[in-house]
Write a protein that binds this DNA or RNA. Structure first.
Lengths: 339, 339
DNA sequence: ATCAAAGCGGCAAGCGTTTGCCAAAAGTTG
DNA sequence: CAACTTTTGGCAAACGCTTGCCGCTTTGAT
């Protein structure tokens, strides 16, 4: 695979080697390779051939140093462990690769501080940032957005373009589903206190419930992990509610397990609605009724918005907000209110 | 958060700004920051203070360019979608972050070509590579390993340090479990043909089964996704086997669903053993008996081995092979042979 | 007091690109 | 054919850092 010339020296060929072989200046090589219109076709072909024969790969470091662009974007997620972010990871990864960008994945461990720190440390390392479910304050986002390209996912803010998942809409659907099954005592099982989308969901839940004259309760906050499901289930059970809308599927799945242990049947005794439709929601027991959102697509859209921001052509004229539709996927975890 | 001086210019402070403020040469700043022993304590403190007050962040690009190190390592996985790799992703991510490295995540889409290509393109971008379940040939691995630091996971090769998951040992355990439940007709449900570990598992399965005088069958190859589970289940059911050892959990979970649809009860009519103990294996229906492996730890070990390789001190004396223990986790998907 | 060794800081040469500027060549127009 | 424009390629200066080398101070030993 590697050519002779390139391998004789242990060190990879540089633009100079290519220039020499092609009999042109390095500047011409540079242009031929990254700005094809700028050089004559035959020259370009000669350069390309030389580059190919040497198996030349431009150094992204050097390129970045002199051009100021790194061709990498960083994706900050609160927890790589959470399947919700898996979908974002692969959505962005896809789109980035297609655009010739490298993805820098960082786990911020649900910490605003760590998030801010990463943003600072990587200012030169990445051309832009995608903040998934950011824990940052509005002020912090504003500050960050003032010096670097940023897109947030599920964290609305006037200060940066955002991809939102229309959870309010979905909460309404869930509520409708539940009331149509006869439920009137419904509990919201809350996620992390610092989560913007948790706050949003809860608020919508409260408002919509009130309008419908439902009896609501609220438990939480809980860490959005299956392991917190036990505590969540116990707390929810105590409220006397016959149905729960749960912050996310992870928590909901954990609750499912606990409820079974305690002999509380789902959905006969208690209905459960999750949120996100993550991997596993379809094959847990019972399969989870959940608010499905096109998470992967959200990742892709976020990349597009970020890249548009980076592109000098579109600069400024970029879309500030994308709302991803959601819908309720009804599976086995919801049923008629117990008699 | 940002200091006045640093922000006045729109451009981030460089080592020169720090040097000026501290009243020393840039070389001293460089050393004070990355080679603390080399400068006097008071000088160092002065530099550190200057750097802090300017909110200085060294450019990894420039650093990489002049030092030849990037402080990034690339993780190549065949499919970011697969939960098996999630655990590797977070295992490596953890360990890398702890060591001050950045993780470059690349999805090679189960393609050897893409893998080789990435290895080539990123030669300068990453200090080392972790190849998870590599599809590369021995020769390709040899070639790559000759010019860059490489560690493979679940792909044994004499040419690069490897982290292996002891599946053979686990297959034996699974077989023992199954025979002790009375099963004698067992089917191996195969994964991708190009997967080294699939070959390995199958081989062990065959050998051990023969020794025990079992009747074996084999179906596959199947793509290791839940969606392939239907085909796999149908094929396995036709063999007349009463138990299956399945290439991985993803496939196994898919089979579970299909078998239920077809009215084949698990484990009453058919026992299923998966492999990997991925997220979801514990809460699917029925919960999956599976060969559990410390995947996340495997990722961490891989990082350690890679970092050791990179460290000039250890160079050469690094461990070539780590075998991660496995054990059978018995859950609800296996039971006595049908009467 | 003398001298070698160690400690410490500075100089300057890269590292591999990109890119603004310039000049030569080629093409166009009247 | 002159005058001008466009195309094309080269020169050289960055980009921000690391590091080999040198030389000045200290320090310690004799």
């Amino acid at each position: 695979m590697a050519d002779a010339k390139a391998r004789t020296a242990g060190t990879p060929p540089t633009i100079r080697d290519v220039a020499e072989l092609a009999g042109v200046a390095t500047s011409t090589v540079s242009r031929a390779l990254s700005n094809p219109g700028r050089v004559n076709r035959v020259t370009r072909e000669r350069v390309e051939q030389a580059a190919a024969s040497l198996n030349y790969v431009p150094s992204s470091q050097a390129r970045g140093l002199s051009s100021g662009r790194t061709n990498a974007i960083a994706l900050l997620v609160p927890d790589v462990t959470n399947p919700f972010y898996f979908d974002i990871i692969r959505g962005t990864q896809n789109q980035l690769k297609a655009a010739g960008y490298t993805q820098l994945l960082v786990d911020t461990e649900e910490s605003a501080e760590m998030e801010a720190d990463t943003l600072r440390k990587m200012q030169r390392t990445a051309d832009g940032f995608i903040l998934a479910a950011s824990r940052l304050t509005d002020a912090q986002i504003l500050e960050a957005a003032s010096t670097q390209a940023i897109v947030t996912i599920n964290r609305s803010s006037a200060n940066a373009p955002t991809v939102m998942i229309d959870t309010p809409g979905a909460v309404v659907q869930a509520l409708e589903h539940l009331t149509s099954l006869g439920h009137s005592k419904i509990c919201y099982v809350g996620g992390p206190a610092s989560s913007w989308s948790n706050a949003k969901r809860w608020k919508t839940f409260e408002e919509e419930s009130r309008e419908r004259g439902l009896t609501t309760s609220h438990v939480g906050p809980f860490t959005p992990k299956t392991t917190s499901g036990a505590a969540a289930a116990d707390a929810a059970a105590r409220t006397g509610a016959t149905a729960c809308i749960v912050f996310n599927d992870l928590l909901a799945i954990g609750m499912l397990q606990r409820l079974r242990e305690r002999g509380i049947r789902v959905p006969e005794d208690m209905s459960i609605v999750g949120c996100d439709d993550i991997f596993g929601a379809d094959f847990c027991n019972p399969p989870l009724t959940t608010i499905a959102s096109p998470i992967e697509q959200a990742g892709r859209v976020a990349v597009s918005m970020l890249l548009a921001q980076l592109d000098p052509l579109h600069a400024g004229s970029t879309r500030r907000l994308a709302v991803m539709p959601t819908h309720l996927t009804v599976r086995g975890s919801t049923g008629p209110v117990p008699a």
